Computed example of a mutant assay.
Amino acid sequence: MAGTDMTEQQGRPAFAELLVARRGELRPEDVGLPAGGRRRTPGLRREEVAVLAGVSADYLARLEQGRDTNPSMAVVDALATALRFNETERARFSWLALTTGSESRCPSTAFDPSLDQVPAALRAVVDALAPAPAFVLGPRAAVLAWNSAWAELAAPLGLLDGPEEVNLALWTFRHPLARTAVTDWAQFADLQADQLAHTRLRRPEDERVAAVIETLCAEPEFARRWQPHRLAEDTPSLLGFEHPTLGALTFTVQTLAAERDQEVVIWLPRTAAARTPDLRLVPTRSADNDRVISREHG
């Protein structure tokens, strides 16, 4: 599954792939059109989307085939409306339109080893968040650095078992403790699959993202959830655990975007979240006790 999909991705821009995939997902009744008779292929006809968006069918064909990679934002907005994208999907659809087909506007998305290196400033942020568990998440769901508070939670869950890499997506679908420890495992699993799909659209040439997806596609639960053209929904704000040593836990998840396709993820205990409406990056322990633990990647 993944191998074929990756080959198709190399032959057509992600924006074009998404246009074709979304058109195939929608039914006539989804956009206010009569269902009509049998169709040779599922989804909307190209002519129907063109009419809904106010563009010619020939122009839409050029966009879908990757022959035109510079649509105006007015056209992108009209297509997003015609394809019934919600606000989150519309924003990401627009991002793909802006960054596809032009190397001058879109830098190479091939794997860059520096993406696994956590800048000192970002480590300081994670350190300052203690005692709240926090970690740095990379583009392929790899946890690149974390503080001791997160390690105390993660170690009994088996998240730190891997000798070379800590990866949330791999843990979710392959570690036996994940399904019993995460309170709403199905929602968490959907999130991991959706975020990898979004990363793949943004980084189509990154072989390490492709390798993680290829590995996970061997897992039936991931394969069932895998929709390569899906635009990830907003991240759920609550995360619950039946922790093997600490019992029932509920966290409010907050994310701070950083450079280099990295982000800081904070698991803020619900009691602390209720008392702290504004997140403050103030250390409450010594730097020695709360140093960020990181691993180098080859």
Score class of each variant (00 low, 15 high):
Glu87Lys: 07
Phe188Glu: 05
Ser104Asp: 12
Leu246Met: 13
Ala50Ser: 10
Thr255Gly: 05
Arg174Gly: 14
Leu129Gln: 02
Asp116Met: 06
Ala124Gln: 12
Pro107Leu: 09
Ala169Val: 08
Ala57Tyr: 01
Thr180Gly: 14
Gly3Arg: 14
Val51Tyr: 00
Leu19Met: 06
Leu256Ser: 04
Ala97Ile: 04
Val182Met: 10
Pro42Ile: 08
Arg12Glu: 02
Gln187Met: 09
Gly24Asp: 12
Gln227Pro: 02
Gln65Arg: 06
Gln187Lys: 11
Arg260His: 13
Asp290Arg: 00
Pro269Cys: 15
Arg67Thr: 08
Arg39Tyr: 12
Ala134Trp: 01
Gln65Glu: 06
Ala189Asp: 08
Ala134Thr: 03
Ser94His: 11
Phe15Ser: 01
Arg275Tyr: 04
Val182His: 00
Arg270Asn: 13
Asp184Ile: 14
Arg22Tyr: 09
Gly162Glu: 04
Gln9Tyr: 08
Gly101Met: 09
Gly247Ser: 09
Leu153Lys: 03
Glu259Phe: 12
Gly240Asn: 00
Phe173Pro: 01
Leu177Lys: 07
Arg270Val: 15
Arg295Met: 07
Thr199Ala: 11
Arg39Leu: 14
Val125Met: 12
Thr245Gly: 04
Glu164Ala: 14
Leu201Val: 09
Met73Ile: 12
Arg27Gln: 15
Ser72Pro: 08
Ala97Val: 10
Pro28Leu: 09
Leu216Val: 00
Arg39Met: 13
Ala232Phe: 07
Ala145Glu: 02
Glu103His: 08
Ala97Arg: 01
Ala218Gln: 05
Gln195Asn: 14
Gly138Arg: 03
Gln9His: 11
Arg84Tyr: 05
Val282Asn: 11
Ala272His: 00
Arg174Pro: 02
Thr250Asp: 05
Thr235Ala: 09
Leu44Tyr: 00
Gln195Ala: 03
Glu221Gln: 03
Leu115His: 11
Asp112Ser: 15
Asp5Phe: 13
Thr172Pro: 03
Ala211Pro: 03
Ala155His: 02
Ala16Thr: 02
Gly240Trp: 06
Pro228Phe: 00
Trp95Tyr: 14
Glu152Met: 06
Val55Lys: 01
Arg45His: 12
Ala53Gly: 04
Arg40Ile: 15
Leu177Gln: 06
Asp194Asn: 11
Arg280Thr: 14
Trp95Met: 10
Met73Pro: 00
Leu249Cys: 10
Glu17Gly: 03
Gly11His: 13
Thr252Pro: 04
Leu137Gln: 04
Ile293Glu: 04
Phe135Asn: 06
Val126Ser: 04
Ala248Gln: 11
Leu153Ala: 08
Asn86Leu: 06
Val125Ile: 15
Pro176Trp: 13
